[in-house]
Simulated assay, not measured.
Amino acid sequence: MAAKGWFILKLLMFQGLFISRPQEDFDFFYFVLQWPGAYCDTNRPCCYPTSGKPAADFGIHGLWPNYNDGSFPSNCDPDSQFDRSQISDLVSSLKQNWPTLACPSNEGFKFWEHEWEKHGTCSESVMDQHEYFENALKLKDKADLLQILTNSGINPDDGFYNLKKISNAIEDAIGFTPGIECNKDSERNNQLDQIYICVDTSGTEFIECPVLPRRRCPTRVQFPKF
């Protein structure tokens, strides 16, 4: 009887009915950076952090584990709650490079808590909470997107730019093709919103994207002021 029970248990595990995919089972990260001018120039509420208006620079949105088929794990470990004491030495840099634009105005801890609990807990096999945020900050240093774009004559001046030129500028600088997402402002202009750069499972090195985000942009997009 025991042998039969073990066989049934193994069958359920094989079929994915007993347990979900293990939290370390992911294929790569999306490192996502967002342009604040596009975030705020929509119908959604936009509030500056309590520290004041962020710099006119791309801000980190998150470091997200992903599967090669385009799906992703989330909220992998409810017991691994965000602990701000673990990132106390990073707070100043996080406020500068990973600012919140959510309302009501706040310091940013709610944003970072959400990102850790939804995405970071799915990468605990390779990094702890401090490493998760530290790695994201290091990745942003490696990809200074605003400098990359302005060096190619692509400026946040409300002008419209060729999408391929934007993509090529980033690829030439980091060596890999980015994913680019747009949103629309109140006048229905397509705006440069988010840049996706793929990262290996260590969370430290850029790689070619196994799959690009589904939301795409037209051939010309606006780079709004902030």
Rank of each mutant, 00 (worst) to 15 (best):
I87C: 07
D83Y: 03
K165S: 15
E117W: 10
T121P: 12
L90H: 03
K138P: 06
R215N: 15
T219H: 15
E113H: 02
L94K: 03
E117C: 13
G159Y: 01
I170V: 10
S123Y: 05
S125Q: 15
S167R: 14
R215Q: 15
K95C: 05
F176K: 13
T150M: 08
S92H: 10
I87G: 06
D79M: 07
S125K: 15
D141V: 06
N168T: 15
S74E: 14
S152M: 02
L94M: 11
R214L: 15
A136R: 02
G153L: 05
T100K: 00
E205F: 09
Y161P: 06
V211C: 05
I154K: 00
T201R: 14
P73H: 04
D157C: 04
V91C: 03
S93C: 00
S105R: 09
L145K: 01
L149Q: 03
W116A: 14
F133W: 05
E134G: 11
N189Y: 00
D193E: 10
I166C: 09
S123C: 10
D77R: 12
R188T: 05
H114P: 02
P156A: 04
D185W: 08
F176H: 15
C76Y: 02
S152A: 15
Q191K: 07
H114S: 06
I154V: 07
F176G: 05
I180A: 04
C122A: 12
F133Q: 12
A143T: 09
S202H: 09
S152N: 13
E181S: 02
K138L: 11
S93T: 03
F176P: 03
L145N: 00
F206N: 09
F109Y: 11
S80A: 15
Q96V: 13
Q86H: 08
R188L: 09
E171G: 06
E181Y: 00
F109W: 11
A136M: 10
W98K: 05
R84E: 13
V126P: 07
K138D: 12
Q191Y: 01
W98L: 02
S152V: 05
C182P: 01
T121H: 11
S105F: 07
T177S: 14
H130M: 07
P210M: 15
L90G: 08
D77S: 10
S105L: 06
K110L: 14
